[in-house]
Amino acid sequence: MRALLVVNPAATTTSARTRDVLIHALASEMKLEAVTTEYRGHARDLGRQAADSEDIDLVVALGGDGTVNEVVNGLLHAGPNPNGLPRLAVVPGGSTNVFARALGLPNDAVEATGALLDALREGSERTVGMGLAAGTPGTEDEAVPSRWFTFCAGLGFDAGVVGRVEQQRERGKKSTHALYLRQVARQFLQEPNRRHGTITLERPDAEPVTDLVASIICNTSPWTYLGNRPVYATPKASFDTGLDVLGLSRMSTVSAARYATQLLTSSPERGAHGKHAVTLHDLDQFTLHSKVPLPLQMDGDHLGLRTSVTFTGVRRALRVIV
């Protein structure tokens, strides 16, 4: 077996020595080429090269959710073709590692490498669905390139939080859950549309959902983690179905506190709920329109402002070693 290992040297929870140990362990079981990323988008380029190659059987992403997202976008650059593309494996090295943990992998890089090698020996894999977001035809965002996401996306409030976290990291702050919670509070205090949302969700053969402040799109569950605590925004979401959506149409101080409490105490059976919350399950396609430009995020990566995005749930998009 020939494998490509894509290594993010800035991964927050692995040291250079740990990465060397992991590379040695993987190389003992396969013909391995390890490449360290050198710029933003490099992992995507490497994934694309692997997809176009006839020699690569497996691509291993060593890093956080951002690295995994880039690799996936490279592998799927020409569209899904599970049996014709290299398989994907993940060794978590980020601060949260939602995709890897949602697959049931250990959150420790060394343990995850052991689990990966065991899975390869046993031939254990699954084919998972992915989300695809694109600029909506006929709108000013029509020319925005499409992009795949592995576990979540968001337009509005949560994407604003992601943008704030990225700004803090660019200033040298370490990515921690405490940093994320502080930015949630700041986004709430400065959110201009929290009482009267600007987002409308449209889908075929259904009435539109209007006046949303926040729209969280999930490709799996949990939505995220706070330390070891899973947070379930849409508990029914799965890699085996379409996309799920949690929409919030009001975020007053009282309602925001209620939804925050519900999310922090959420379970696989119940997420956020109430008069101003709507949950939609297993959607193949829908469009979010906003009256004003709003921040967009995918897999925790802030992508700028958008007014209209069309989301598609693509079943059986990629084979993953588990």
Rank of each mutant, 00 (worst) to 15 (best):
R2M: 14
A3L: 10
A3R: 08
V6P: 04
V6R: 05
P9K: 09
A10R: 15
A11S: 15
A16C: 01
R19K: 12
V21C: 02
H24N: 15
A27Y: 03
S28G: 04
S28Y: 00
E29D: 10
E33K: 09
E33Y: 03
Y39A: 13
R40S: 12
G41F: 06
H42P: 14
A43L: 14
R44E: 14
D45G: 11
R48V: 00
A50S: 07
L58I: 15
V59T: 03
T67Q: 12
N69Y: 08
E70K: 02
L76G: 02
G79K: 08
P80Y: 08
G84K: 06
L85E: 02
P86M: 00
L88H: 05
L88G: 04
V90H: 07
P92K: 02
L103R: 06
D108F: 01
V110N: 04
T113P: 06
E122N: 15
E125N: 15
E125I: 11
R126T: 13
M130D: 01
M130C: 08
G131L: 02
P137K: 13
G138N: 07
A143W: 06
V144I: 10
S146K: 14
R147A: 15
W148G: 10
F151A: 06
G156P: 13
D158V: 00
A159S: 14
V162T: 05
E166A: 11
Q167T: 08
Q167F: 02
R169H: 00
S175A: 12
A178K: 01
L179W: 01
Y180C: 02
L181Y: 00
R182Q: 13
E191K: 04
R194Y: 11
R194E: 07
R195W: 14
G197Q: 10
T198P: 12
I199K: 10
D205G: 11
D205L: 09
D211P: 08
V213E: 05
A214W: 02
I216Q: 01
I217C: 04
P222W: 00
W223L: 11
T224D: 14
Y225F: 14
L226P: 03
P235A: 04
D240S: 09
T241Q: 08
V245Y: 03
G247T: 08
M251V: 12
A257M: 15
R258S: 11
R258F: 15
Y259N: 11
Q262I: 12
P268I: 05
R270Q: 13
A272T: 03
A272H: 06
H273C: 13
K275W: 00
V278C: 11
L280Y: 01
H289W: 03
V292M: 04
L296H: 07
M298N: 06
D299C: 09
G304I: 06
R306E: 06
T307H: 08
F311K: 06
F311R: 01
A317W: 01
